Simulated scan of single mutants.
Amino acid sequence: MAHTIHSRHVHYGWDNGLEPVLEVEPGEAVEFEVVDASGGQLNPGSTAADVARLDFERVNPVTGPVFIKGAKPGDVLEVEILEFGPARWGWTAIIPGFGLLAGEFPEPYLKIWDLSGTGDRAWFNERIAVPLAPFPGTIGVALPEPGRHSIVPPRKNGGNMDIRHLTAGTRLLLPVWVEGALFSIGDTHAAQGDGEVCGTAIETAMQVACRFRIRRDLRLDEPAFIVPGPLASGQDPRGYFVTTGISDDLMEASRKAVRAMIRYLGETYHLEPAEAYALASVAVDLKISEVVDAPNWLVSAFLPQSLFVR
């Protein structure tokens, strides 16, 4: 890789006043060293007590920014995700006050994953293995508004979108809001379910390589992406166990579907509620099944049966 941005070049907010670390021509590729979402506050020896002590001013750092020459407001920046480097370990946490069921899980929880030499799966316990599909949880460009803006929520510039389908080969399309775009990336995940329901995936540090192009053949107000082939989701050869939630509020429908999944995992596979919630976050896909039959909407939670290997 011709260009590498090392992990010391991180920042904690979108700010169009930041000086770029690197300038590149369209068509060039860059390798980024990404720090895990805790900003290095957690390690393989950490416990749930360390989760409760996280400094939220240091979470979700992104590596960058990169100035892409010729990119101007109104353009679209195409970011081709080329490849990911290996990860040695990861973590999944329930953070008090955070997540879809925050009010029901007030205590911190931490799962440390061994990702070294695990091939294409990571073991949750002796019976359950989660397929690995790395992607960046946070990826975006600077906003047009001056000052520092939190990285935590997704916005029109991208940001913390947690789209699990941004795997190698995908092309992300981002509206450009400032000259040079000022692209940054972080929050790499080894695996995640659609919804990331407990608030964390398999969080890990890794390298990720991207190539940049400027597109002037389309206009976007918010991000879009192009997937090069079939989605992994929906392709499990052993099928799925699916729970549903029905409500006049989509968030409550989502909560009901996840509560039912947690209960199923506890009754069928003897997982503690916090374990089931964490497993759902990294392996269960939430899907909006319908939003047309007022007054109630339906959300489904898909559990791949191939997780259960022993």
Results as ranks from 00 to 15, higher is better:
residue 165 H to A: 12
residue 263 R to H: 13
residue 275 E to C: 08
residue 84 F to L: 10
residue 94 I to Y: 04
residue 278 A to I: 02
residue 133 A to V: 10
residue 229 G to T: 03
residue 278 A to F: 00
residue 213 R to K: 14
residue 128 I to L: 14
residue 75 D to C: 06
residue 95 I to R: 03
residue 139 I to K: 03
residue 273 P to Q: 01
residue 287 K to V: 11
residue 49 A to S: 15
residue 71 A to R: 06
residue 26 P to N: 01
residue 73 P to D: 08
residue 58 R to A: 09
residue 212 F to H: 02
residue 219 R to N: 13
residue 23 E to Y: 06
residue 185 I to V: 15
residue 61 P to L: 07
residue 37 A to K: 05
residue 230 P to R: 14
residue 194 D to C: 12
residue 161 M to Q: 11
residue 68 I to G: 02
residue 123 W to G: 07
residue 240 Y to N: 09
residue 12 Y to R: 08
residue 239 G to T: 11
residue 263 R to N: 10
residue 138 T to R: 07
residue 62 V to T: 01
residue 18 L to W: 03
residue 76 V to P: 02
residue 154 P to D: 06
residue 33 E to A: 00
residue 13 G to P: 06
residue 287 K to T: 12
residue 293 D to H: 14
residue 54 L to T: 05
residue 290 E to Q: 01
residue 248 D to C: 14
residue 52 A to R: 03
residue 77 L to E: 01
residue 217 D to E: 05
residue 119 G to T: 09
residue 262 I to A: 00
residue 39 G to D: 07
residue 95 I to V: 09
residue 61 P to G: 06
residue 292 V to R: 15
residue 180 G to F: 02
residue 30 V to K: 01
residue 167 T to F: 12
residue 257 A to T: 11
residue 167 T to K: 12
residue 98 F to T: 05
residue 138 T to L: 07
residue 16 N to S: 14
residue 137 G to K: 04
residue 266 G to S: 11
residue 165 H to C: 09
residue 305 Q to L: 15
residue 215 R to T: 01
residue 140 G to P: 04
residue 143 L to E: 10
residue 135 F to P: 00
residue 230 P to H: 13
residue 1 M to D: 08
residue 110 L to D: 07
residue 262 I to R: 03
